[in-house]
Structures are given as structure tokens and as C-alpha cells.
């Protein structure tokens, strides 16, 4: 049962229709792939390209990245995109940051049953990737509260009604709850010693869009480029700062890391801090509420400056 929710057919139809009408230049969705995670982003520019679209529990990629890249390339165009609820939050963040003109994007939403975390079944036979189980389900799906894509312009298929079964960021709470500072430092040193600085984590993140990343600036040079443990740590601490109040926990960074560095442990920790310090703020949940780091208030305490 690969087609976990039966929206494939409806999506193909919708995509075809949108392209035929001509008001949309590209439709972004998923297609099948022969390699794990057995799916791959797909961009349809012509009606016939839409035949390849699928949706199943392996469709992990956050397609907002492709919306952003497409619109940077063709700023006059309009795109339609199939978005899971979690991924849709990053579109909200990009719109809040004026990086995407929401008018140019038609969000096709649906009721998401959850997706697989391909890392949990890495190396296993294709069968292990076919349907959701307690072993392969992505952590983020266990506490998801946006299963029916919010702010969808078009909704296809049936709504789902699945309640969260775990506390938000349960993995992070557990991880940081048990460890002393020195244990944490040892853990992260070990993890970052294997980082090869391929920047896949940064490239795949829809919210990492800087023209020149601070990790590459060399006049002056903030972070040395050689992938030593210390330099890598600096890069990742820096990236954590960039993600504060912005990361929406799509999990893409963690998925793509070729050496398996558990990056969500970092960004979700930062999100917990933001939630705690800024009155429960959660990135991408409410497009009306100003992100904490974009907001200025006369009452802001400045005790950390002097």
C-alpha cells in the first residue's frame, strides 16, 4: 500500500487542469524514484509532465525549497505546489520575511497521514519503506498538529483526524534532560568531527537562502573553511542562531546529512527556547504574528548588552 493516502490521482488531475488553464507556469510535487527514499521532487511545466506525480509515505522532501528556487529563477511566474502541513509552515516564514510573494504560490493541501523517516529504515529492503509503522514513522509526525495543510488554496482528498501521541520535541527534551554540560560538549564534538562541510543541511533548508552564507565570507573571515571539529562546531552554532524562531522542524537537514549528524536536536532545542522566552511563539504557525526576531518593542529588556 504505497499510496497511503489516495490523493495521487486527484493531484495529477488538478495539476493538469492548472497547467491547461495557463494561470500556473509550474506545478511542484513528487515522483517515484528507484532509490531510497523512493521518491523525488518533480516539477511539471507541461501537462504531460503531470503523469509522473505520486504521493505516498515516502514523500519526505520539503517542496517549499523548490518553490523558492523556482521563483528566484522566474520571479514573474506562478507556481502550484503540493504541501504537507509541516512544510507549509516554511512558506509562511518565507512570506513573513518577504522572500516569497504568497500571491504567486497556489498551495495544494491535503490530509497527511505522516511520512517515513528514511534514516530509520536505511539499508532495509524496499518493503520497509512501503507503509507507516511504529518503527519507521518520522518523529515529527508523532506530535504533528497541522496534518490538514493550513492556509491551503486548494484542498484535495479527505481531511484526516489524527491526534498527536507524543509531546512536541520529545526527543530533544529527553536528550537534553539527561545530559550534563560536559557530556553534551563531548557528544557534539564527536558528532561534528565527522561533518564533511558539504553544506547539504544548509542547501536543503528552505529558510537558508542567504546570497553568501556567513560560513563562506572571507573579508573578514568569520568561520574558517577547513572542516576541523572546531570550525564545524562554529558553523553549526552559527546556523542554529540563524534558525532561531524560524525553523519549522521539517527535518530535511537531518535527513540529508551524509554522516548522520542529528541536526534537529540543535534547531528544536533553539525552538524550545524561543517558545519559552517569547510567549509560546512557534515559527510558521500564525502568519499574523510577528516573528520575535523581527519585532521591536520598547519594553525589550536589554540586560544582556550591559
Amino acid at each position: 500500500m504505497t499510496e497511503a493516502v489516495n490523493i495521487g490521482e486527484e493531484f495529477r488531475k488538478k495539476a493538469r487542469e492548472l497547467l491547461r488553464k495557463g494561470e500556473i507556469n509550474a506545478v511542484i510535487g513528487y515522483k517515484k524514484s528507484g532509490l531510497p527514499p523512493y521518491s523525488k521532487p518533480h516539477i511539471a511545466l507541461k501537462e504531460d509532465d503531470t503523469d509522473e506525480f505520486i504521493f505516498d509515505v515516502n514523500c519526505v522532501h520539503n517542496l517549499v525549497l523548490y518553490v523558492l528556487n523556482y521563483l528566484l529563477e522566474y520571479p514573474e511566474d506562478k507556481v502550484a505546489v503540493l504541501l504537507k502541513g509541516c512544510d507549509q509552515k516554511s512558506l509562511i516564514v518565507l512570506a513573513q520575511e518577504s522572500k516569497i510573494d504568497r500571491e504567486r504560490v497556489k498551495v495544494i493541501g491535503f490530509g497527511c497521514p505522516g511520512v517515513i523517516d528514511p534514516r530509520k529504515v536505511e539499508g532495509d529492503e524496499e518493503d520497509a519503506h512501503k507503509s507507516l509503522t511504529a518503527e519507521n514513522v518520522h518523529d515529527k509526525c508523532l506530535y504533528c498538529d497541522v496534518r490538514n495543510t493550513p492556509q491551503a488554496d486548494i484542498f484535495i482528498g479527505e481531511m484526516v483526524d489524527i491526534k498527536p501521541t507524543k509531546e512536541r520535541y520529545f526527543r530533544e527534551r529527553e536528550f537534553y534532560g539527561k545530559k550534563s554540560e560536559s557530556e553534551l560538549l563531548d557528544f557534539w564534538k564527536g558528532a561534528f568531527s565527522s561533518c564533511i562541510r558539504c553544506y547539504a543541511c544548509r542547501q536543503v533548508c528552505p529558510l537558508c537562502y542567504c546570497d553568501i552564507c556567513i560560513s563562506y565570507r572571507n573579508m573578514p573571515q568569520w568561520i574558517e573553511l577547513s572542516p576541523t571539529t572546531d570550525n564545524n562546531m562554529l558553523f553549526h552554532v552559527r546556523r542554529a542562531m540563524c534558525m532561531a524562531g524560524r525553523c519549522i522542524d521539517c527535518g530535511e537537514c537531518e535527513r540529508v546529512c551524509p554522516v548522520g549528524i542529528p541536526l534537529r536536536l540543535i534547531y528544536n532545542k533553539v525552538s524550545l527556547e524561543i517558545e519559552d522566552k517569547y510567549d509560546g511563539y512557534r515559527a510558521g504557525m500564525d502568519s499574523e504574528r510577528k516573528p520575535p526576531l523581527q519585532e521591536y518593542s520598547m519594553a525589550d529588556p536589554e540586560d544582556f548588552i550591559l
Binding site: 525549497l65 564533511i196 558539504c198 547539504a200 536543503v204 540529508v256
Partner: peptide, 16 residues
């Protein structure tokens, strides 16, 4: 232009 729209431009393929 349409060959690999899914490539994110990371360094993995060249590093490995």
C-alpha cells in the same frame, strides 16, 4: 534546464 531540477547544489556528490 529540466534535467535535474531536484539538485539542491550541495557538495555531497563532488566530495564523495
Amino acid at each position: 534546464k529540466v534535467l535535474e531540477p531536484s539538485c539542491i547544489g550541495c557538495g555531497i556528490c563532488t566530495f564523495v
